[in-house]
Amino acid sequence: MDGEFQGSHSGPMETFESLVRAEFTPKTTYLNTASNGLLPARTVAALHEAAVLRAEGRPLTPLHEDTEACRAAYARLAGVPVTRVALGASVAAHTGVIAASLPAGAEVLTAEDDFTSVLNPFHVRGDLKVRAVPLERLAESVRPGTALVAVSAAQSADGRVADLAALREAARAHGARTYVDHSQSAGWLPTDAGADDFSAAVSFKWLLGPHGAAFLVVPEDFGGLSPVLSGWVAGERPWDSCYGPVAELARSARRFDLTHALFTYAGLRRSLELVEEIGVPAIAAHDLALADRFRAGLAALGHRPVPAPGSAIVSVPGLGSRQPALADAGIQVSDRAGNLRASFHLYNTAADVDRLLTALSA
């Protein structure tokens, strides 16, 4: 990890390496961000402070402020107005709200073997036409009558990156809407959520936050969604909406909020601050350089990963069975459908890549 960057706030230049070293102290060779990102030190401290606040019976006002700060930070990262961002607990719940809005018989186009949270709520409706095609054929498969195209920006299983520009163009040409899950890309791949009708992302992977938070981006006019999961926090005046039906839903995307996991947002605020301080372009350059180093090393060993150019996730067919032994050796990767999946983020180094390659060569 070398090179310099200028943080998003005024101040002296600081090396990428020095900032990352101050925040992360992994005890293993951790190459598994596609499952869970590591928590920065500032996030761990914030979680502790939030717990103490609750334990001592003090007002929780700071935690509510953290929640709104997270909404604003994600809006900046996603490139959308904060009024378009709703807070929830999972991508599956957000997908469920979108699925509930579709008329019976509507066609939903999906990518084969995409992550379940992007798909299953459409299937369980039982009265939608869900069609799956290979990721590479998604754009060309949009047709008249397609109501919605749902896809992950980067595939969880193997890191393949969707051609979102082509997909959006095809969707517009046929009057379809788009729904993109950025869970495996937000934090390392620049996000243009404003170009899609709907998008979502969890907080605990590349955004380096705790579990329990997920973001939903909706159009300014809400895109025909009904806030079927909303409670008191979805009211225009939440504290006046605690009893009886909500008299007035929030005039922003907050009408789709689920009850906030306050501790999660207390920590996540600091994680998002770190991502913004370093900047997604710098993170992307770092992560992709490591992924390319791993691909080159695999080629030298005679292994061929799933083609996924421009991805921070590398998946190697036939090596998934090596995962338990690698874990025993202190190298954390995943076994996904028989493939060994390694994923690289800002706390990883070239030495981490080389250690994995050395282990695989044995």
Rank of each mutant, 00 (worst) to 15 (best):
T358N: 08
V333A: 12
P40G: 05
F263Y: 07
L189W: 01
G267Q: 06
I278R: 01
N348I: 09
T95P: 02
D163I: 01
T349R: 11
T191E: 08
D196T: 08
T178A: 05
D240I: 02
A327R: 15
K27D: 15
D181S: 11
P81Q: 14
P144E: 14
E17W: 02
A153F: 14
A166H: 08
D196G: 02
A247F: 10
E112N: 03
I278D: 00
A291L: 03
G224C: 10
A139E: 04
L87E: 03
Q155L: 14
N348M: 12
R21I: 10
G320Q: 14
P12A: 13
D197P: 04
L189Y: 02
H94I: 03
V130S: 04
F198T: 10
A253W: 09
A157H: 13
G57R: 09
G159K: 11
R160D: 00
S252L: 04
L119G: 06
A291I: 02
D113E: 13
P227W: 02
D196V: 09
E23W: 11
F222Q: 03
A247R: 15
I331C: 09
N348R: 11
T259A: 02
K27C: 13
L60C: 00
C242H: 11
A89Y: 09
Q184S: 07
G3V: 06
P26A: 05
E56V: 12
P324I: 10
A291Q: 02
G79V: 05
Q6S: 09
V280M: 00
A93K: 12
V82W: 06
F16K: 08
A92N: 07
A100V: 11
A111G: 04
